Deep mutational scan, measured.
Amino acid sequence: NQASVVANQLIPINTALTLVAMRSEVVTPVGIPAEDIPRLVSMQVNRAVPLGTTLMPDMVKGYA
């Protein structure tokens, strides 16, 4: 099972992602792969992401 990126805190809309804001977890459905965490740092989310939410490619500006 592949680990996905999960919000480690509430991430407000247009907030730049940080290492502290993300964690890796095996979840269903699978979201952005955990190995992409370094690439996600400083990218912005295009919606509010609640704690525990799996990050999907369409939630991160410039990711997809």
Rank of each mutant, 00 (worst) to 15 (best):
P12K: 09
V27S: 04
A3P: 13
L10H: 14
M22A: 00
P29L: 05
N46L: 12
L17G: 00
I11M: 04
Q44L: 15
T53V: 13
P38D: 11
V26I: 13
T54S: 02
T53P: 01
V60Q: 02
A3Y: 12
K61R: 15
A48F: 10
I13M: 12
S4P: 01
I13N: 13
I13S: 12
L55M: 08
R47E: 09
L55R: 02
V60P: 01
D36I: 07
A64R: 07
M22C: 04
A48K: 12
P50E: 13
L17Q: 01
D36T: 06
N1V: 15
M56K: 07
N46F: 04
E35H: 12
L19D: 05
V49F: 03
L19N: 06
V49M: 03
S42N: 15
P29T: 04
S4H: 02
T15S: 13
M43V: 04
Q44C: 09
A48P: 11
T53A: 13
L51K: 15
R39D: 07
E35W: 14
V6S: 03
M56Q: 13
R39G: 08
A16K: 14
V5Q: 01
S42K: 11
Y63K: 00
R39H: 10
M59S: 00
T15N: 08
I13A: 15
V49A: 03
P33M: 06
P33E: 02
P12I: 06
K61F: 11
V60N: 02
A21M: 15
A21I: 08
M56H: 07
V30R: 13
S42F: 08
L17C: 04
Q2A: 12
Q44M: 14
V20E: 15
D58H: 13
S24K: 11
L17T: 02
P29I: 06
Q2F: 13
M43Q: 06
P50T: 11
A16I: 12
L51Q: 14
M59F: 11
L17M: 04
Q2S: 11
A48L: 15
L19Y: 11
D36Y: 13
M43T: 03
P12F: 06
N14E: 07
V45R: 00
T18N: 06
E25Y: 07
M59E: 02
P33Y: 07
N14L: 08
R23F: 05
T53G: 07
M59H: 07
I32A: 00
N1Q: 13
Q44D: 05
A7H: 02
T15L: 05
P12G: 07
G31M: 02
L19V: 09
V49Y: 04
L40C: 04
I11G: 04
I37L: 11
E25I: 06
T15K: 08
P12R: 09
P50W: 06
V26G: 03
M56N: 04
S24I: 11
P57F: 06
A34N: 05
M22T: 03
A34P: 05
V41S: 02
V45P: 03
G62R: 06
N14C: 08
T15G: 11
S4T: 03
R23D: 04
P12N: 09
T54E: 03
L19R: 13
N14D: 13
S4F: 03
R47K: 09
M59Q: 04
I32N: 02
N46S: 14
L51M: 15
M43P: 01
V41R: 00
L40H: 00
A16Q: 14
V27Q: 02
V49I: 15
M22W: 00
P50L: 12
I37A: 05
V45I: 04
T53D: 09
M43Y: 09
T53Y: 11
L19E: 08
V49D: 05
V20N: 15
T53K: 09
G62Q: 08
P57R: 08
M22R: 00
Q2C: 07
A3I: 06
I11C: 03
R47Y: 07
M43E: 03
A34I: 06
G31F: 03
N14K: 05
L10Q: 11
Y63R: 00
G31Y: 05
D36M: 12
V60M: 04
T15V: 09
L55T: 00
E25G: 10
T54M: 02
P38R: 10
L19S: 06
S42A: 09
P50C: 07
Q2H: 12
L17A: 00
V20A: 15
M22L: 12
A21C: 09
I32K: 02
A34C: 07
R23A: 06
I37P: 01
D58M: 11
V41Y: 02
A16T: 11
A16F: 15
V6T: 04
A7Q: 00
I32E: 00
Y63H: 03
A16Y: 14
Q2W: 13
L19M: 12
L17V: 01
Q2M: 14
V6L: 06
V60K: 01
P33N: 08
V45K: 00
G62D: 12
D36G: 04
P57L: 05
M59V: 06
R39F: 12
P29V: 05
E35F: 14
N46W: 08
E25N: 07
G52N: 11
A7Y: 01
A21E: 04
S42M: 12
D58F: 15
M59Y: 11
V41E: 05
V5S: 00
T18L: 06
T28N: 13
N46I: 12
A16G: 10
I32F: 02
G52Q: 03
V45N: 01
V49H: 04
Q2E: 09
L55G: 02
S42D: 13
P57A: 10
L51F: 12
A64N: 14
V6N: 03
S4A: 03
L10G: 09
T18I: 06
S24C: 08
L10M: 15
A34Q: 05
M59D: 10
A21L: 14
K61Q: 12
A21G: 08
Y63M: 04
S24V: 13
Y63P: 03
K61G: 06
P33F: 08
V27F: 02
T28F: 15
A64H: 14
N8I: 06
S4Q: 01
S42G: 15
T54G: 03
M59C: 05
T54Q: 01
T54C: 05
R47Q: 14
E25L: 11
L40M: 04
L55D: 01
S42E: 09
P57E: 06
L40T: 00
Q2G: 13
V5M: 01
V6P: 02
A16W: 11
T28W: 13
V5F: 02
E35N: 11
V30G: 10
I11H: 03
N1C: 10
L51G: 12
P38K: 12
Q9H: 13
T28L: 12
L19T: 07
S4I: 03
I32S: 02
V49T: 03
R23E: 04
T53H: 11
V26E: 09
A16P: 12
M43F: 09
P57N: 04
L10R: 11
T28H: 15
